[in-house]
Structures are given as structure tokens and as C-alpha cells.
């Protein structure tokens, strides 16, 4: 699947255009499946296509962080536009996500 890709020791998650509760379970389940299959260390969330996100997106990131943090994994956000950055900052999750 295109949405989940392994690059080196990172899992790249390409998020859809709209990240809400409707899509969240699918993204979380897919990412977790990959995390179990491949022994990756870090997770990278790619917001390239994302134009909308609500607190469900924060839940996705927090959930993945909890799964990899104990093994020294880090979570990154790339291609986040201004609105997505705002959401990441207001929620306080920018403390654990490295926005690149």
C-alpha cells in the first residue's frame, strides 16, 4: 500500500486529505500492523496531502508515539502546512513530534 512505506528504519505514513475520526481507525490500524511486521524505530507522518485535521489526528500521533517511545523511537511530521502546524502546536503535541 502506498500510504505506509518503510524507508531505512522509519515508517512513513502518508496521511489522507482529511484526517478525522472517520479515517483515524484505518490509519492507526495500518500503521500498527506495519510497526509489528517491520522492526522500524521511527515514524514519519507526511502531511503533504493533508488539508484538514482535527483532534483525531493528534490521537493517531500520540498513540503511535506511545508504541515506539519505549524503544527510543521518535515521531516526525513533514510537509505540515500552516494550519496543521497550528493544530500540532495548540494541542501541545509539538513537544513530542519533531516538525521538520
Amino acid at each position: 500500500m502506498e500510504e505506509f512505506q518503510i524507508v531505512d528504519n522509519c515508517l512513513m505514513v502518508r496521511l489522507p486529505e482529511e484526517v478525522d475520526h472517520h479515517k483515524a481507525a484505518y490509519i492507526s490500524a495500518g500503521a500498527d500492523r506495519m510497526l509489528l511486521q517491520e522492526q522500524v524505530q521511527h515514524v514519519v507522518f507526511d502531511f503533504e496531502d493533508t488539508r484538514f485535521m482535527d483532534s483525531s489526528g493528534i490521537g493517531i500521533i500520540m498513540g503511535r508515539y506511545k508504541k515506539i517511545a519505549c524503544f527510543g523511537g521518535r515521531v516526525f511530521a513533514i510537509h505540515a502546512d500552516r494550519q496543521i502546524r497550528r493544530i500540532l502546536t495548540i494541542s501541545g503535541i509539538s513537544k513530542i513530534v519533531e516538525i521538520v
Binding site: S55, G59, I60, G63, I90, S91, I93
Partner: peptide, 22 residues
């Protein structure tokens, strides 16, 4: 309250009302 949720198993952030306020 931010981060409070009655359903932690859903892996949601508990930020709903905090976002509405913000």
C-alpha cells in the same frame, strides 16, 4: 479538561473541547 477522555481505548486525544475553545 484537556486530555481527559472516557474512552482511552479509542486512542483519541481528549482534546475535543480544548480545540473548540481554542
Amino acid at each position: 479538561e484537556p486530555l481527559f477522555t472516557t474512552r482511552p481505548e479509542l486512542e483519541r486525544s481528549g482534546m475535543g473541547f480544548a480545540f473548540m475553545e481554542a
